[in-house]
Nucleic acid binder design. Structure first.
Lengths: 134, 134
DNA sequence: TCCATACTATTACATCTGTAACATTTACAA
DNA sequence: TTGTAAATGTTACAGATGTAATAGTATGGA
């Protein structure tokens, strides 16, 4: 499993952008984030630079500008964060977590369907294992 | 919704202990954590003290010793962390997350059943809403 | 009573984070 | 060509975190 650098709260905002659209110049990022946050352009540039140092973000020099792009995928990060979440709270956490998700109504009908499918598959596998060991 | 103080990675270890068994004296905590980590007793005491400052942990003086206990429940913390997780990755995150959970095999058969129930309920609610708006 | 022990309290210090100011270089317009 | 704006680079600084050392205090045994 690839090692994901530790990304801080503020830095996630930058990553989110780059996942959505990359490569992006520093200015692209500044422009977009200036809308959503109160960060000064220099602040945002610091975040980008730190991400580069951490090797979470790469860049290509294009003339005088830098074009940034993510070096880690969103899925990898979700995975890493999930693992750390699990370590913190143990398996017992997922239930209240899912409940929170549901309550926040972030779940579309299709997403719910997909999740149910994942769980159904897991349940089937459990059953299979039980049968085998019998 | 109650405001959960920001608890750091290392501090979670202390919280986990206290959730499992509290009240506990500083020494209880030190003893247990010394097994799992390489932290010196003073390090662990610092963590406890910080948690007290943050009001994540309370204590009662019992003679010369302090008995510590959590002031926030595990469920509250899971909830708060989930929300922050959601903010970071958006609703799209839950699918790979659940997949990770399943893969790590942290899910018992009963847990899966419970999760499926939660989702089924959510799905039914969606359906109801759709019908109403028709 | 007085010291060793066990606890608690104070202080330290390097990194990481959030938040930015100040400085330098480059490129284009006048 | 030279000043100015835009881009990049360097430095700053306070608060949080990881990790602990040292100092003070209370308490029970010699």
């Amino acid at each position: 499993m690839k090692k994901i650098p530790k990304i801080s709260e503020a830095e996630w905002e930058v990553m989110k952008l780059l996942w959505k659209k990359s490569p992006a110049t520093a200015n692209d990022v500044v422009k977009t984030l200036s809308g959503k946050t109160h960060w000064k352009r220099e602040t945002i540039r610091t975040l980008i630079n730190r991400l580069v140092q951490k090797k979470a973000v790469g860049f290509k020099k294009k003339g005088r500008q830098y074009h940034y792009f993510p070096l880690v995928t969103e899925a990898e990060c979700v995975r890493a964060e999930t693992t750390s979440f699990l370590k913190r709270f143990g398996g017992g956490s997922i239930e209240p977590m899912l409940a929170a998700f549901v309550e926040e109504e972030k779940l579309s009908t299709e997403k719910i369907a997909k999740l149910r499918r994942i769980l159904k598959k897991a349940a089937d596998e459990h059953k299979k294992k039980r049968n085998k060991s019998r």
